[in-house]
């Protein structure tokens, strides 16, 4: 394991307005590190989708971004309701979001598939009534 940088954030589950702040900050940090635009965009979108999910589905949690020489690892952990059927949740269009979430512009059931699409690896560890940890890896060329 080579040297790495870690960025850690607490994601407030009660505040939809502040949701996404961690992702904005990570994007700024990665820009400062001078990483390629395309890499930064993939990390940003994947993390933002996950961060929004933690707020709208799991009452918040923590976000960690580890930057290694050859990869970036995003770890989103919450103590929310967990995901009952991961295969179903991964399908485009599947969402349990309510009308309120939809009126805020989310809840199309596109987030998890989008996170998978923008990352090289995605692991979902989830236990119903205990929580969910999603680990995403983006390789640096």
């Amino acid at each position: 394991m080579s040297e790495f940088l870690n960025f850690h954030y607490d994601v407030d589950g009660d505040n939809f307005v502040s949701a996404g702040q961690a992702s904005v900050q990570v994007k700024k940090n990665l820009r400062q590190l001078g990483l390629p635009t395309e890499v930064i965009r993939r990390v940003s979108i994947a993390m933002y989708e996950g961060e929004i999910n933690m707020v709208i589905h799991a009452n918040g949690g923590t976000a960690d971004v580890d930057v290694y020489e050859d990869r970036i690892v995003i770890r989103l952990a919450d103590k929310g309701p967990g995901i009952k059927d991961v295969a179903l949740a991964m399908q485009e269009g599947f969402s349990t979001a309510n009308e309120n979430v939809r009126s805020l512009g989310f809840g199309a059931g596109m987030g998890l598939p989008n996170m998978k699409r923008y990352t090289d690896d995605m692991q979902i560890d989830t236990v119903v009534d205990v929580g969910t940890t999603i680990t995403m890896t983006i390789r640096l060329a």
Binding site: G20, S23, S44, G105
Partner: peptide, 15 residues
């Protein structure tokens, strides 16, 4: 036509 802070953050994420 949507107005909330996530509109701006979405735009930012998408460059």
């Amino acid at each position: 036509g949507l107005v909330n802070s996530q509109v701006i953050r979405t735009a930012e994420m998408m460059d």
